[in-house]
Amino acid sequence: MQIDQTIVRQAARLAPRLLARHLRAGPAEAPAAPKAAARDGLRGSGSWANEWTGGDSAPAVRARPLMTEREVRLHNWIADRLEVETPTATLHAGVALAAFLHSDAPGALDGLVADMVIVDEAGRPVAALLRERRADPATRGRITAALAAAGVAHVDLPDRLSLSRLWAEIADTLDHLADADAVAAA
């Protein structure tokens, strides 16, 4: 509150001087257009920061792929099979466990990501597909423990995988889901 009053007093003290200076100077020149607006006329979020710091000093940003080429082919193959076998299920890639699990312990799910998740028509996760994490086996253990505690099945994606064996595991998981839904409906 005291800071606001100080600012108002300073503005009231300086306002007559600034007005007099402006009236003596005559019409001012048009302000120069900012660099970002002059280039293409489009302004995104954060463009104001580049005007103040200079666009040349902004860090260089490169996009990196979300999945490797092998993972994209696998994702597309599984999505095609799901569409034929279970048209109500969808496949999602790179899903944070915090998006569909809840933990009372703060930070328990931070940094835990399933490589792919199969979701049923109600939006419930049916199965998580996980690849090996040789560099960080502790994270893999935390992921599988969290999925097991929530009752979400997981399917391993080994480095050398057999597509027929992988689909058999996925189909088995989906069959268990269909059996559970039939029991719940009865």
Rank of each mutant, 00 (worst) to 15 (best):
M1P: 10
Q2I: 15
Q2L: 14
I3W: 12
D4T: 09
T6R: 15
T6D: 14
I7R: 15
V8P: 02
V8W: 07
R9N: 11
R9E: 10
A12D: 09
R13D: 09
R13C: 06
R13V: 08
P16W: 07
R17F: 11
L19H: 11
L23C: 13
L23E: 14
A25T: 14
A25S: 15
A25W: 14
G26C: 09
P27I: 08
E29C: 13
A32C: 09
A33P: 12
A33S: 12
K35L: 14
K35I: 15
A37H: 11
G41I: 01
L42Y: 08
R43C: 03
S45V: 09
G46L: 10
S47G: 00
N50E: 10
E51W: 03
G54T: 01
G55M: 00
D56W: 05
S57T: 01
S57N: 01
S57A: 03
P59D: 00
A60H: 07
R62C: 04
L66V: 13
M67N: 03
R70S: 04
E71Q: 09
V72G: 01
R73M: 03
R73E: 04
L74R: 02
H75C: 04
N76F: 03
W77C: 02
R81Y: 01
L82S: 00
T86F: 12
T86A: 12
T86C: 08
T86M: 08
P87T: 03
T88D: 10
A89P: 00
T90V: 14
T90R: 10
H92L: 11
A93K: 01
A93V: 04
A93W: 02
G94A: 10
G94P: 04
G94S: 07
G94C: 08
A96W: 11
L97A: 05
A98N: 11
A99L: 05
F100W: 08
A105M: 14
P106L: 05
G107Q: 05
A108R: 11
A108I: 06
D110C: 03
D110Q: 07
D110I: 03
G111D: 06
G111S: 06
D115A: 06
V117R: 00
A122E: 07
G123E: 08
G123Y: 10
R124T: 09
P125H: 02
P125C: 03
A127C: 14
A127D: 01
A127L: 09
A128K: 00
A128H: 01
L129R: 01
L130E: 12
L130T: 06
R131T: 13
E132T: 11
R133Y: 04
R134E: 10
A135C: 08
D136M: 07
D136V: 10
P137D: 05
T139S: 12
T139E: 14
T139K: 14
G141S: 15
R142Y: 08
R142V: 07
I143T: 11
A145Y: 05
L147K: 00
A149E: 14
G151D: 05
G151S: 06
V152F: 02
H154Q: 09
H154W: 13
V155S: 04
D156E: 13
D156H: 05
L157F: 03
D159K: 09
D159C: 05
R160I: 07
S162R: 12
L163H: 11
S164P: 13
W167H: 14
A168W: 14
I170F: 03
T173I: 09
T173H: 07
L174Q: 08
L174D: 04
D175G: 13
D179W: 12
A180Q: 12
D181N: 13
A186R: 12
A186F: 04
A186C: 09
